[in-house]
Structure formats: C-alpha cells, structure tokens
Amino acid sequence: MRVELLDFELPKELIAQEPIEPRDCARLMVLHKSSGEIQHRVFYELVELLSSGDIIVVNDTKVIKARLRGRRLPTGGKVELLLLRQLEDGVWEALACPAKRARPETEIVFGDDFLGKVVEIKQTGTRVVQFNKAGSEFWEALEKYGNVPTPPYIKREVSDEKSYQTVYAKKLGSVAAPTAGLHFTERLMDELVRAGIKITSVTLHIGWATFKPITSSEVEQHKMEEEYCEVSEDAANEINMAKTNGKRIVAVGTTVVRVLESVADEDGTVKPWAGWTNLYITPGYKFKVVDSLITNFHMPRSTNLLLVVAFAGLELTMKAYQIAINERYRFYSFGDAMLILP
C-alpha cells in the first residue's frame, strides 16, 4: 500500500492546542463499519452507545517526565534528550537535539548532581545514554529535572501536567500519552460501570514505535520498534468472558489494540503476558480480539492512522476524516474522538 494514501490536508487551526474541559465534553464521531453510517455525538454519551456486558479495555500507562534539557560538558552547549525506553537500570535509549552535540563519550549535565553520558549511537540515530543514577534515585532525579513531553504540534507549554495523563494512569513508563483515553472522566467511568459496562486495563508503555512516522514509500516496508506491554490474568479472564458471551471488546486507543492482538491465540483467546511487542498492523490484518475501537484523529502517514485503516477500511476511514475536517472536529492528542463499531 502506497503511503500517500494516508495523506490529507488539515487546516492548522484544527490541531487542538489544549484539551476540552470537562474532558468528556469532546465531540465523538461514531462510525458504523457494517453500514457506513456516521453519527455526531458527544463523548459523555458513550454510555448510550454501548450495552451491558460490553467491556472497555484501557491502557493504564503513565507518562514520565521524559524530556530532559541539559548542557554539554565542558562547553556548556544546550542539549535536549527525549527518553524513549529503558534498556537497563540507569541506561536509556533517547533522541538527542541537536544530535551533533551528543556524540559518543559526550557528558550532559541536567542538574546539580544528575548527568548522563552518551555511550552508543544506534543505526536509527538514537543515543544510548548511561546516567549516573539508577533505581529510585534515577526516578527522583527525573521527577525533579525532567518535563512531561508533548508532541511538537502542540505549540504551547502544558500548564497542568495532569491534562496529559489519563484519569486512570498508574504505571510509569510512557513518553507519550495514550490519547484516546484522555476523554474519560471519573464521572463517566462511574456511569459506564453502573450501566453494566465493564472496564479493565492492560499496559503498553508508549515509546518511539507509536509516534515514529512512516517514511517508506510502501507502508509494508516500515519497521515497528518494540514496546513493553503487560496483560494480567484478571484482565485476560474478563476479556475472554465478555467475548464468550458475545459482548463487544472496546479498545481505547491503538495501543490497546496492539496489546490484545499481540497476546491472543489464533482463536482470539487472550493470554496473560508481560514482554515486548512490535506488532505492526496493516490493511489485511485479521483482528482476533478487538471489534470496537475508540481512537483520536491521527496524523497523516502515521502507524496509528494505518491501524485505523486496517480496522475500518481505507475508503470509510478517509471519508470519515474528510467529514471531520468539514465539520471542524479537533485533531490529534488533545482533539476529539472517534468510536468505530461493527
């Protein structure tokens, strides 16, 4: 599939710069795959669109303060790191800007007693950085000197860091938020549970894989990096029970889709799991578990958009995106949402 099929023209003013408040007042486009019908709703109406016994699966990862601004020793030149994933205790893979100031053996100081040393440059251009702290001391230093990273298309500093975390975030490890989940409020989750709709969580720590753009001319040539994920025995049992009972499995975000499809048997049975996945979903993929998807409106030529195309079809997805543009939906991380139903 040619990557230009994932292109669309988006007016800059439709790129959301801050979240809607309350969160669940975001707009919700409902896309019915079987009929092609499109409805315009509000996210807090989700409870009216699902049924008792359906299960919503969320990603409970929590965004870390992965952006570090420091100075190169001994020259004092500014260097910024974006931590991508932990390779071992105190050792991280990171993006560096400007990259030319982060050659091997370069030392970068981020605070009074917190520094990192570039020990390797990978073929992808990322840096392997050894920090002078590990364990709890590293996390304390990161909390003190780091900043929550936001995508480059968000031009203003996020004044409230909680706005870039889901209300159910628990497990530190992501360098970007699972943005489909940003629309949930505690009130809405309570309403869903009272309506008999189950909510369970899995974990995928978002790294470079999720936001790395597709640069190859054919989407099949793109290589997906690994990301760490977990599925508990309780979550697997709840999902399998709902599937056995013929209820909908509603994934909140493309990361949840990738987790569940990574850990499922060919018959769709979800297994408990803790490990790494590089599952890359392209058109033609046969979904084994997920039949409904809550997702945001994604960037052109992104693996997220490609997954949505694989799930709902190219023609219907791009039609929905054009309607969203015409109807002035808000796009990307702080934007509006789409619910794709069978």
Rank of each mutant, 00 (worst) to 15 (best):
V252S: 12
A236D: 02
I239G: 02
A242I: 06
K243V: 09
T244L: 14
V231T: 13
K271I: 09
V256F: 12
V250G: 05
G268S: 13
A235G: 04
N237I: 07
P272C: 03
V250T: 04
L260K: 04
R258W: 10
D265S: 14
R248H: 15
A264K: 01
T255H: 12
V263I: 08
G246Q: 10
A251D: 08
V250K: 05
K247I: 02
D234F: 06
N245Q: 14
P272T: 10
P272K: 13
G253W: 14
I249V: 15
V263S: 04
N237M: 10
N237C: 02
A236P: 04
V256A: 07
K243M: 14
A236H: 06
P272R: 14
V257H: 06
S232W: 03
G246F: 08
A251Y: 11
D267T: 00
R248S: 14
A251V: 08
T269N: 03
G246D: 10
V263P: 03
V263T: 12
R258E: 01
V256M: 10
I249K: 11
D265P: 00
I249F: 12
K247V: 05
A264N: 01
A235P: 02
A242Q: 01
T254W: 11
S232F: 04
V257T: 14
G246K: 10
T254Q: 08
V256T: 15
E233K: 12
E238S: 10
D267C: 02
L260D: 10
T255E: 13
K247L: 04
V257R: 07
N237Q: 11
T254A: 06
R248D: 09
T255I: 13
V256W: 12
E266M: 03
A264T: 08
E261G: 02
I249M: 13
V252W: 10
N240C: 06
I249Q: 06
V250Y: 03
E266H: 01
P272A: 14
E261Y: 09
T255Q: 07
A242S: 15
T269L: 03
I239C: 02
V231P: 03
D265M: 12
K243A: 15
E266N: 00
N237V: 01
V231N: 03
G253A: 12
A236I: 09
A242H: 02
V270S: 08
W273A: 14
D267G: 01
V270H: 05
V256I: 14
R258V: 10
A264C: 15
N237D: 12
V252C: 15
V259S: 01
I249T: 13
A264V: 01
A242E: 11
G246L: 13
V257K: 04
V263F: 12
D234A: 11
A242G: 05
V259I: 01
W273T: 00
K243R: 15
D234N: 06
V252Q: 07
M241W: 05
N240T: 01
V256G: 06
R258A: 09
T244E: 14
D267A: 03
P272W: 08
S232H: 01
A242P: 07
A235M: 02
